[in-house]
């Protein structure tokens, strides 16, 4: 192991911070389910059945947009964590 750059130790403090982050994230995701997914489900089903071409071109932007949004949220949570450590 490199003595100049030792491996950080996994502590209870880190674990509790990770769990807190997961809890905040879970609350966000639950809200997201109810407000977005449940509203989208029937529209997507209709489009899937009746307009397959539209469904095809909706799928990719949807997952990419969600990835970008959630990445922002997680990055925000991480920055918050770093701020707390400082």
């Amino acid at each position: 192991m490199d003595k100049r750059n030792p491996r950080p130790r996994f502590s209870l403090k880190i674990l509790s911070w990770v769990l807190l982050k997961i809890a905040v994230y879970a609350a966000f995701v639950t809200t997201y389910y109810f407000f977005v997914l449940l509203l989208l489900a029937h529209w997507l089903k209709d489009v899937f059945v009746a307009h397959r071409a539209v469904y095809t071109f909706v799928t990719l932007p949807l997952i990419i947009a969600q990835a970008a949004l959630l990445d922002l949220v997680v990055t925000g949570l991480r920055k918050l964590g770093q701020g707390k450590k400082k």
Partner: peptide
């Protein structure tokens, strides 16, 4: 696969939310 009717985007969206964290 979406054009061929093989993608359930809702499952992908839900699974991805857990995957990110």
């Amino acid at each position: 696969h979406a054009f061929k009717g093989n993608v359930d985007i809702l499952i992908a969206l839900v699974m991805h939310t857990g995957g990110v964290i």
